[in-house]
Amino acid sequence: MSESFTAKIWVLGDDIDTDIILPTEYLAYKEINDMKPYAFSPLRPDLASKIQPGDMIVAGRNFGCGSSREQAPEVVKALGVSCVVAKSYARIFFRNAINNGLLLIENQELYDQVKEGDIAKVTPGKSIEVNGKTYEIASLPDNLMEILNAGGLVKAMRKRNGLD
């Protein structure tokens, strides 16, 4: 979990709700991959085509508010987003992201200090370095780390059922 990586930053605002992350219209597509082009489309129709695997999202407060649709964190993960850094998260989105192995980092300062296109070095559980500054980040609670370390909730349950 603590391997460092570098990532290009995309900046979104406060209250990025799950209808923005993935509108209801596309929720019934059979595969998450088919939903990818429509991610963030109400706000920025071209964003999904610009995000490259490994990029990160930096946002303000209450990221992922609204609906419980798990397609939202799944589609962000499917786009190859390496992590999301926000001032705060809505609780259902937070759980759904962890269950799918999407790394979420809570940080109060970064959003006001970076601009789109900046490159950050992220060390999960430790720090984010960007524009010559280092921001300390906290680790997740133990029970969530267990799920993340197992590779998500599906894998944790398969292990419980003696399948892996």
Binding site: R69, E70, N99, G152, L153, V154
Partner: peptide
């Protein structure tokens, strides 16, 4: 309260949630 479908699948199998 609301949850995602993966947690729901876990509950359907175990009857429990944290």
């Amino acid at each position: 309260t609301g949850i995602g479908y993966t947690e729901m699948a876990g509950i359907l199998g175990t009857g429990q949630l944290w």
